[in-house]
């Protein structure tokens, strides 16, 4: 029954992609096209404000929408201070925790520790905001009483809360990059009579540190974009800029971040007025650019890990 065909073969023409492939590609393309479309729409609606105010938005700290002043500097300052401070507080704890989980904790306990970290990551931001309102705000006001803050709603409170929120993110990614260093290298180092601490310092950390910086940048990106929790405890006071960049006074005063502005009632109010609406959308674009920057840099570093081709 298996006779070989003779002579020249008639080839089937290259067929068009079958239905499954076509559907997949079409759905993927549709999704990307919609994304592109909304981005264009966004920029178009932001355009009136960019054209009218342009660079002034980045250099002026005055935001009075009734007088058509749209300076975003105070919010950029608020976002930068809150998220950088949060990272400064969270990163050492996160790195130490990651090192402990990856290098010291016995294998059998590791999943439990990771589950606790994941639990922290899974808690919705509105719950963190609630905890901030119920506890942190009061604690911070009591603790900083010598400096006589107006209330517990201040940049520093937001930074502390945000530190707790980005802690699991940084820990998880830092732990991943530590784990990516092959176990065989650790064994080899121990075989050369290095103790565990030396192995961590000479073998593991030199290879994992780009990934750990990447983890910190991802945490920064996450912190910049966090809205609800920050919104609830930052006081949302416009136009607070310090005398100089290192002036600590605004830390214990209420302030505003890009996200707390965007999440506030002004966004709804702005919708009717093209200029005001455009200014709000421009804030969104600034936020998008900043998070994109840090997250792509962070991902780049995470992938730079030598053990992670």
């Amino acid at each position: 029954m298996h006779a070989l065909p003779h002579g020249r073969l008639t080839w089937q023409k290259r067929r068009p992609p079958d239905a499954v492939v076509f559907t997949c590609l079409a759905a993927a393309a549709l999704f990307l096209a919609l994304l592109g479309f909304t981005l264009i729409l966004w920029v178009r609606e932001a355009w009136p404000a960019i054209r009218a105010h342009g660079g002034e938005m980045l250099t002026s700290g005055e935001w009075f929408y009734r007088h058509q002043h749209f300076g975003a500097l105070a919010m950029i300052y608020g976002s930068a201070v809150v998220s950088l401070l949060a990272l400064l507080l969270a990163a050492p704890v996160a790195f130490a925790t990651a090192i402990f989980i990856s290098e010291w904790l016995p294998h059998t306990l590791r999943p439990w520790a990771k589950a606790a970290v994941e639990f922290l990551a899974a808690i919705p931001s509105v719950i963190y905001g609630l905890l901030g309102i119920m506890f942190l705000r009061t604690w911070m006001a009591d603790w900083l009483a010598p400096f006589d803050p107006l209330s517990g709603d201040m940049l520093l409170t937001a930074a502390v809360l945000l530190a707790v929120m980005i802690l699991p993110t940084v820990t998880t990614f830092a732990e991943d990059s530590l784990r990516a260093v092959p176990a065989a290298q650790r064994l080899a180092a121990r075989g050369l009579a290095l103790n565990r601490t030396q192995t961590i310092h000479r073998i593991v950390l030199p290879q994992a540190w780009p990934g750990m910086i990447g983890a910190a940048l991802l945490g920064l990106g996450r912190g910049l974009g966090e809205t609800i929790a920050v919104f609830l405890i930052i006081g949302r006071l416009d136009n607070r800029l310090p005398e100089s960049l290192l002036d600590p006074a605004p830390l214990i005063e209420p302030g505003q971040t890009l996200t707390s502005k965007l999440g506030g009632p002004e966004t709804h109010i702005a919708m009717g007025d093209p200029l005001h609406w455009g200014a709000i959308l421009t804030l969104g674009l600034i936020l998008l650019v900043l998070t994109t920057l840090f997250v792509s840099l962070g991902n780049l570093l995470l992938r730079k890990n030598p053990a992670h081709p």
């Binding site: 909304t38 729409l41 809205t227 965007l262 919708m271 969104g284 936020l287 998070t291 994109t292 997250v295």
Partner: peptide, 21 residues
Amino acid sequence: FILQLLNAVPSILLGILGLIL
């Protein structure tokens, strides 16, 4: 890369996107 970035887009921006769309 696009998927990674999308994963990191702050959720408030989605809310505003909803207002636009």
